[in-house]
């Protein structure tokens, strides 16, 4: 944690998004199959660079986080590969849709496997409900002119039902090799 953060006191720093709120029991009303189907759909939209479809999965209080150095330090005081709120997700999607986001123009060719899905618990959300927290392994194969890259990691998701639809409120991807230098990560991991 930075010296500056200590100077301004913990009050100014919001809780960590991953473990700042208490882990509750797995909330009722979630079936493994529908959850897995949602994860596979999210993965496919990302693989196929369906930016609008992928963006529509997110809630308004979304957090999309790819830390460095294992689980990462507090993302407000230390740098991460990605730490997007809903607005920055939108900016990221607008940029790539210009067709001149060269790191992703042409888009990567991608396929990923999602597996080892576990129900972890529940997290209270700002809307007064409890999000389902699950985690899963991801192994993604990326092909670009620079070469092929294999990305592996453990992803934590938080899901919420909004108007009968499953939506994504939180996604944290801890890359296996995030303590090393990694190449450009232009696609949606």
């Amino acid at each position: 944690m930075s010296v500056m953060t200590q100077q301004q006191g913990d009050a100014a720093l919001p809780p960590r998004p991953d473990n700042g709120a208490e882990l509750l029991e797995v909330p009722d009303g979630w079936e493994a199959r529908e959850v897995e189907q949602f994860l596979y759909r999210e993965a496919r939209l990302a693989d196929e660079n369906d930016y609008d479809g992928w963006e529509a999965l997110w809630t308004d209080d979304a957090i999309y986080w790819v830390p460095v150095d294992g689980e990462g330090d507090h993302p407000r005081t230390t740098v991460s590969i990605i730490f997007d709120n809903r607005s920055r997700i939108s900016t990221r999607m607008k940029q790539v849709k210009t067709g001149k986001r060269y790191a992703q123009a042409p888009p990567s060719n991608l396929r990923r496997i999602i597996g080892n899905v576990e129900f972890i618990g529940g997290r209270a959300n700002a809307e007064g409900g409890v999000d389902l927290e699950i985690s899963a392994n991801v192994l993604a194969f990326e092909s670009r002119p620079r070469g092929n890259t294999l990305w592996g990691g453990r992803t934590t998701y938080r899901l919420r039902r909004v108007d009968g639809q499953i939506r994504l409120a939180y996604k944290k991807v801890v890359l296996v090799d995030n303590e090393q230098a990694v190449p450009t990560l232009g696609f949606l991991i």
């Binding site: 100077q7 301004q8 100014a12 407000r76 590969i81 990605i82 730490f83 790191a103 450009t184 232009g186």
Partner: peptide, 28 residues
């Protein structure tokens, strides 16, 4: 300069590094 520091972290995450909206394009 704590009023600026968290914002500089946030702007840096958005701009630089492997997924940065500026530097990933430079790197390409």
């Amino acid at each position: 300069g704590h009023e600026l520091n968290m914002r500089m972290v946030s702007q840096s995450i958005g701009s630089v590094g492997p997924a940065g909206m500026l530097l990933a394009d430079d790197t390409e």
